[in-house]
Design a protein around this nucleic acid. Structure first.
Lengths: 253, 253
DNA sequence: TATACAAGATGACGCTACGTCAGTTTCAAG
DNA sequence: CTTGAAACTGACGTAGCGTCATCTTGTATA
């Protein structure tokens, strides 16, 4: 029989916790000294380990007490329930993860997070999936909807989306620094974006035109759940793109 | 300006929560009636939505209050911290998931969960990864350690592991029903296991022999972190396997 | 205008699994 | 017998509300 401090040392559980487990009757000491100090034996250590294991599975102390005392505990049901709970929590966490990534990316794009950004992100995640889908299929046809699926997204973290976000972020910075749209740095970014668009969507000029038209209208962008870009940035990109097109044609492409 | 009940209806937040937010100064009503009833306006609704969004990201109410009041809030740091937190929680959950799956599978194998099973699972997950590795490399050579990696595991849920678990569960049931080891059902299961072993490990009779020897010794199994099987079941399998081998040789294979 | 009834207000306790004092008692060694 | 460490009990705090209980206000109807 060992005193409480020794048990705490052996198991890594704090003394307070052990006293608490005694208090709620989960793990009671095997005996006491005359003065009322708790003493634990082999049996209690085993029980403690069982408790620790079941806790690591995510059961609550009340449930653990039931499991350990009730020989007729329905493991099948209990484990299924526990698994369902775990799955739910995982879903919540991955939604959180997406939201945080959205904020991080909007930080990259705009060089900071403003409260207005949050409002826009609220809009972005506010509509129901059904609503979104219907509005999209109202604008795009079958083939185009497949292309739509390939669009980069602020909430994702694949390398493609990341590069888009980084490119837009760079454009935004250049525009804020009053670099002219015809500047070589800007033009190189546009060429890269053009290349990526080709890679991603293949040769689908009509789709890209529709997409661009939607991008230029804040309302339309919002309804389509496109990440909202500032109008000055959009204007900047439009001018730059005109220059890009013009130069391409001059080179006879 | 709308009363609290109306706001609750519009936002889906409970009246109690709204009062709590007022209490902690997170979202205060825009005004009050003579009698002291809370009244909310457009501004408060916006603020509430921001709060809801940040809550969905996983921030705590205190942090949200800071974020919304402090214009100099360090988003970069805050978001990184939040992401780190999310990742930690995800890790915890996936460990829980593994543990629950381990219990579920042991239920399949043994037809139920006993407290002694838990003790064994504690042993299984108790040792440090380093300890395990060293002991394994003490027994197996380089090539064999690669084969070891392909072993099915009670905590995984790939189709292969699942079938192994199911097969062992069936053997256990047959043995409990006193079906003789030479019974066709038992032999078919052994043939299937043999096929799977061939598929998984290729032609490595020495490795399989070592593995089987370890399986037959409870101590060795435990040290190698193999899922513990009851001695009667092991004996049953050994007898059945002898029959299987004999028949195979009689067929001249 | 009196009344009834819904809606609102405040206050307090409950929940989880302990951490963290504070104040008192017991244990083991010298 | 003293002393210092260890143990004891009890109480409050935590996050984000849910859930009473009790009292007051707002509003529609008779």
């Amino acid at each position: 029989m060992i005193p409480i401090h020794e048990l705490a040392r052996q198991t890594g559980i704090t003394v307070r916790t052990l006293r608490y487990y005694d208090q709620i009757g989960l793990v009671e000491p095997g005996g006491k000294t005359e003065g009322g100090h708790r003493l634990y034996g082999e049996q209690e250590i085993k029980r403690l380990q069982q408790v620790q294991f079941l806790k690591s599975v995510g059961f609550r102390l009340q449930e653990i007490a039931t499991i350990l005392s009730d020989a007729k505990w329905d493991w099948t049901r209990g484990l299924k329930k526990q698994m369902a709970y775990i799955r739910e929590e995982q879903k919540k966490l991955s939604m959180m993860e997406n939201a945080v990534r959205g904020l991080m990316h909007s930080e990259t794009i705009e060089g900071g997070v403003k409260l207005s950004t949050i409002e826009q992100l609220i809009q972005l995640s506010g509509q129901s999936a059904e609503q979104k889908r219907r509005y999209r299929s109202h604008i795009f046809d079958e083939t185009e909807l497949e292309l739509w699926e390939r669009l980069p997204n602020v909430s994702s973290d694949d390398p493609d989306s990341l590069e888009w976000i980084a490119l837009i972020g760079q454009l935004n910075r250049l525009q804020a620094q009053d670099v002219p749209p015809a500047d070589a740095r800007v033009q190189r970014i546009l060429r890269r974006m053009d290349e990526k668009a080709q890679e991603t969507f293949g040769d689908a000029p009509e789709f890209l035109d529709k997409l661009w038209a939607a991008r230029m209208s804040p309302d339309e962008s919002q309804r389509l759940q496109l990440y909202p870009l500032d109008p000055p940035l959009l204007a900047f990109v439009e001018t730059a793109y005109a220059v890009y097109e013009q130069e391409r044609q001059q080179r006879g492409e």
